[in-house]
Design a protein around this nucleic acid. Structure first.
Length: 375
DNA sequence: AACCCTACCAACCGCGCAACC
DNA sequence: CGGTTGCGCGGTTGGTAGGGT
């Protein structure tokens, strides 16, 4: 206590990040890594505090971020993990590749909490509300009008039943939730001797153990040969995707799972997969980092191919996050005249999407007005 | 058209912890 | 060994969009 916030220093910008700031930060980190965060803004030419830069990178600019809407499987997993871990968002996020603690926290507070209550489940205790009510006030019998609708949550039963968490049911039917996860933690630490990180719970839920065969949407292929550029300076909690992050002992022997994340698929709005586009468009492509040369993000391309195939087959339109195109794709497409996003997509078996780009450009210009305060 | 309300989410803030000096 | 620094986490805030009246 008592320490001054770094942002109290004079002339440090606060508030929303402009595309130019994002560009500076990304360029700097892709070239040099973040190293000491406090030195990043100076080296990158930003009038921000290091803390702000770190936050922006972790929550928004990191190339391995998935973004887009959460799948039902992801929501269920969050609920299950929250039942065990509580509000330890970073640990929950560690089990959801491409998701940030901030993102999960926001989802929890804005959506999941409400859904749980509607289903008669206390979001803090994960017990039926009727149970909690009877503890608080035995006289009040809360007859739920909450179970009138069909559930968005696959596990949710009526309020008078305890909540069911199918992943846990499948994996450890006889165990309590807490016991199951604790057992998983112990087992993982015992078996993954070489790579298990002691300081956190990374890998305590491998995808196989989480029965992701039943939840393939969160699967992720790992290229075991890929070295991650930021590994040397990143701590596990930053969730830079690395092979040992998902339970090395299991994944090493397992064939790579082809990712399919439906939330990223959209035929109408925008199907931009941010990092493959933006990084290949500018300096990082030619830089020394080998960020893409080593195929660390091969899954992204594979995902696009499969996602596109799925969307073509099913004709299902899913909501898609277009922020990346707002901030990144459009301006960089303009800057790089020889290699536009269309070329990248074409090269990777992805359809050129001029119309989507136009839509993104429109939205970008719309959002850009919001940055007028800085200009 | 204007206002209000709600939901969403990016960003900030304060704190704890660990490493460093 | 105590102070300082830097990082990460969780809680909270504030801006914006969208829907309703």
């Amino acid at each position: 206590m008592g320490r001054h916030s770094c942002c109290y220093k004079q002339k440090l910008r606060k508030g929303l990040w402009s595309p130019e700031e994002d560009e500076k930060l990304i360029k700097h980190i892709t070239k040099f890594g973040h190293g000491c965060w406090s030195s990043v803004p100076k080296l990158a030419g930003l009038q921000r505090c290091g803390k702000s830069c770190r936050l922006r990178w972790i929550n928004y600019l990191r190339p391995d971020l998935k973004r887009g809407t959460f799948s039902q499987e992801e929501e269920n997993l969050i609920i299950e993990l929250h039942a065990v871990l509580g509000n330890r968002w970073s640990q929950i996020a560690a089990q959801l590749p491409g998701r940030t603690d901030n993102e999960i926290k926001n989802l929890w507070n804005s959506s999941i909490k409400k859904k749980l209550r509607q289903r008669g489940i206390d979001p803090s205790t994960h017990k039926p509300l009727s149970e909690a009510d009877s503890e608080d006030n035995k006289a009040s019998k809360n007859n739920d009008k909450t179970s009138e609708n069909s559930s968005d949550l696959s596990f949710a039963d009526a309020a008078d039943k305890p909540p069911r968490y199918p992943l846990l049911d499948n994996a450890a039917a006889s165990n309590s939730t807490q016991e199951f996860f604790l057992n998983r933690l112990v087992a993982t630490h015992e078996t993954s001797t070489a790579t298990c990180k002691p300081s956190d719970m990374s890998g305590f839920l491998s995808f196989q153990h989480l029965n992701y065969g039943a939840a393939p949407n969160i699967a992720l292929s790992i290229n075991p040969n890929a070295s991650i550029f930021f590994n040397s300076t990143s701590k596990s909690s930053e969730n830079i995707i690395s092979p040992d992050h998902f339970g090395t002992t299991n994944l090493a022997a397992a064939p790579p799972l082809l990712p399919s994340i439906p939330s990223r698929v959209n035929n109408n709005n925008n199907s931009v997969t941010p990092f493959s586009v933006k990084f290949e468009n500018w300096d990082a492509r030619a830089s020394e980092c080998g960020f893409f040369e080593n195929n660390a993000f091969a899954w992204a391309a594979a995902e696009k191919v499969e996602a596109h195939a799925q969307s073509s087959e099913s004709g299902i339109n899913n909501p898609e996050d277009i922020k990346w195109s707002e901030y990144m794709q459009t301006p960089f497409s303009i800057q790089t005249q020889n290699l536009g996003a269309q070329d990248v997509y074409a090269a990777e078996g992805w359809q050129p999407q001029q119309q989507q780009q136009a839509a993104a450009a429109e939205i970008y210009s719309k959002h850009f007005q919001a940055f007028g305060q800085y200009s």
